[in-house]
Simulated scan of single mutants.
Amino acid sequence: MDTETSKSSAWVQTDVEEMNQYHVPAKYLGNGADKRDMSALGREQVLRRNFRFISILGFGCTLIATWEVILTLLTDGLTDGGTAGLIWGFVIVCVGFLLVFASLAEMASMAPTSGGQYHWVSEFAPKSCQKFLSYVTGWLCATGWQCAIVSIAFLTGTIIQGLIVLNDESYVFQRWHGTLLVVAITAFSVFFNTFLAKRLPMVEALILILHIVGLFAIIIPLWVMAPRASAKSVFTQFNNDGGWNSLGTSTLVGFSGTITAMIGYDCAVHMSEEIRNASETLPKAMMSAVVVNSVLGLVMLVTICFTLGDVDSILTSPTGYPFIQVFFNSTGSYAATNVMTAILIVTLTASTITEVATASRQLWSFARDNGVPFGEFFSHVS
């Protein structure tokens, strides 16, 4: 009995020491694979592993917000490429990015670290330039994610302005109004990540539901009430209204919108130290997010291309967003248009919250590796 008691005491003592070492409650430390990965990476676990497959899938799907971004960037694609350029371009982009993120998912399974790309570069680059290339990659990723925050906030803020224009003809669209809305949305996202961070996994799962259900809440009224274009014109009509030297060049320029709608699935990588069983869960969630958003994006894109109505009139819509005009032309109802557009506002706001989470983890990890000034300050976790 004494031997058994002493063994139990030793195990309890080991658990306590492990908890104190990592400064994280035992239930958030992850499984054995997570501990081995952290040890192999030479890192100490300081973040809570409270993300599971569904919540990290929601994280990736809602941050990229593929079908929502497709709607907001319709102008570029309709001007350069037309409906056929949009649809076939999106298919090409999806196939290409599926291959890209398959490679990233493989690296994430080998080294699930919040540092992501700059860590992998340091592993795979030639020894002579590992540090330099890793440093440059770290700065590109850190600043890129910071800029991505305001890009989504800008879309959300100006969509709100577009709704105001639709509902109040006396309103004068001012760019500084949009700037204030961007600041407000960004500030809300920072507030959420600061004081409600523990709720983030639950919120991501809920927003994933809205992301999927919201799509059907929009496309069903469009299919029922909107005028239909012919399949031949939708799938074969290319445009070159941008004045490029060839139709092919114009179509390639129009790819910018569809590329934007499919970029950034590495966001989940930067949450890897908060995912339980990260080396297995993370790559599965990344690839699942790419597939789910590709399917949803294609469904929305085909739907909107069939129900555009007169393209020239929606491109000159006073709202600034053709999709808002399409919603109103299809339903003939301010209330219905407001509700349909509000779905995008909510999901894009959620995307901004997720962007802040991703950008903060990327900056934190890079600071932990002394990649930025005041690294000790930015890498500190209470």
Rank of each mutant, 00 (worst) to 15 (best):
F188L: 14
S151G: 06
H177P: 02
G157H: 01
E204I: 09
V150Y: 10
V182I: 06
I149L: 03
R175S: 13
G178T: 06
C147S: 03
N193M: 07
G178F: 10
V183W: 13
M202Q: 09
F192G: 02
C147W: 07
L155Q: 01
F154L: 12
K198R: 13
S151E: 08
T194M: 10
E169H: 14
T186K: 02
I159D: 03
S170N: 10
A184G: 09
L196V: 13
V172R: 13
A197T: 14
L180D: 04
T179G: 08
T158W: 11
L163G: 03
T194L: 14
Q161V: 06
A142H: 02
T158C: 02
F173L: 11
A184N: 06
C141K: 05
P201N: 10
K198C: 07
G162I: 00
F192D: 02
S170H: 13
A197H: 14
V182E: 10
R199P: 01
I164N: 01
A184H: 03
R199D: 15
H177N: 11
V203G: 07
T156Q: 08
S189W: 02
H177V: 11
L140H: 00
A187P: 03
V150F: 08
S189N: 00
G162V: 01
W176N: 14
C147V: 14
A142P: 05
I160P: 00
L200T: 10
M202E: 15
L140T: 11
T179I: 10
F191K: 08
I185G: 07
V165P: 08
V172H: 14
W139R: 00
Q161P: 12
D168H: 11
L155P: 08
W139C: 09
I160W: 03
Y171P: 00
M202F: 15
F195S: 00
T186V: 05
I185P: 00
V172D: 09
L196C: 13
L180N: 09
V203L: 15
I159A: 04
L166I: 11
L140G: 04
L166N: 04
I149S: 02
F188D: 01
T194S: 08
W139I: 09
F191A: 12
C141F: 05
L166W: 07
S151H: 07
L163T: 02
Y171E: 03
I152A: 07
L166F: 08
T179W: 12
F173C: 04
R199G: 13
N167V: 06
N167P: 08
S170F: 10
V172E: 12
L163A: 06
W176C: 02
